[in-house]
Amino acid sequence: MPVLALPSTPAPSSMGVQLLTNKNVLVSALGGDEQERQRKGSRYALTFQLPPMRYVTAMAWDDLNAEGVTVLMRVYQPGFNTGAPGTPLVKGAGQAGTTLIVDGLTNGYVIRKGQFLSVVTNGRRYLYRAAADVTVAGGQASIPLRTMLRYPPADNDVVEIAQPMIEGFVRELSEQVVGVDRMTQFSFTVRERG
C-alpha cells in the first residue's frame, strides 16, 4: 500500500488529538466493582485545521483526496521544543506491553509526559505518547507509554522523537471552498490503521 507524505507547510493552525481506545470495560451485573482491561490496538486520530491559503498553495495538499492509500503527516506540538534527542533506536526485539526501551539517546535528554513519538517497524509508523517524564541516562531510557505497543518492534527500529509522524487514512476531509479572493481553508483527520 503506498504511503503519501503530506506537505509540512503551511503548518496547521490547530491539531485535535483523539485516542481511539481498545480497552475493555467489565461492569458487574450485580452492582460490583467495575474493571478496565487494557488491550492492544488503541491508536490515535489527529484532526488538522489548516490556515487560510491561496488556492495554488492548497493544490500541494491534493493527496488528501487519494483513495486506497495511507498518508504520512507530521505531528505538531506547538510551543514544545523537542530539542536534540540523539539517534533513538529500539533496544531489543520483541518488546510488548506499555514500556518501550530505547537507546542512542542524548544523555540528560528529558522525554516529557504527553510527548509524542513514533516507532517505524517494517516500514510502518506507530504513534505513541509518553505516560511520564523520563531522563535519559547512559544513552538509554525505558519510556512508559500511554497505550500498549501495537506491534512488537525489532531491535534497532527507528524511534522518531524529534519529529514524530502519524501514518493512516484520511477521514473527515472538509469541503474545500475557494472564495472570490482565491483563498481556501479546510480540515482533515488522519486516523491510524488498526
Score class of each variant (00 low, 15 high):
L6D: 03
S8M: 08
T9M: 11
A11Q: 14
A11G: 08
S14D: 13
M15A: 12
M15L: 10
M15R: 10
V17A: 08
L19Y: 07
N24I: 15
G31I: 04
G32T: 02
R39W: 03
R39Y: 04
G41A: 10
S42M: 08
Y44I: 06
L46V: 10
F48G: 03
F48D: 02
Q49Y: 05
L50F: 13
P51M: 13
P51W: 14
P52V: 12
P52T: 13
M53W: 03
M59Q: 14
A60M: 04
A60D: 10
A60I: 05
A60C: 02
D62W: 11
D63K: 11
L64Y: 09
N65K: 13
V71A: 01
M73D: 00
Y76R: 04
Y76W: 12
T82L: 07
T87V: 11
P88D: 01
A93W: 08
G94K: 08
L100Y: 03
L100F: 03
I101T: 12
V102H: 02
V102E: 00
L105P: 00
T106E: 07
Y109I: 10
V110Q: 06
V110P: 01
I111H: 00
R112P: 01
R112D: 09
V120D: 06
N122P: 01
R124M: 07
R124S: 10
R125K: 14
R125V: 04
R125D: 01
Y126K: 05
R129I: 02
A130H: 01
A131E: 05
T135E: 13
A137Q: 11
G138I: 09
G138E: 03
G138F: 02
A141N: 04
S142C: 08
I143A: 12
R146D: 12
T147K: 07
L149P: 05
Y151A: 14
P153A: 10
D157F: 09
V158N: 10
V159L: 07
E160V: 07
A162N: 09
Q163L: 10
P164V: 03
M165V: 15
E167V: 12
F169Q: 11
L173H: 11
E175H: 12
G179I: 00
V180A: 10
M183G: 03
M183C: 02
Q185I: 10
Q185H: 02
E192K: 07
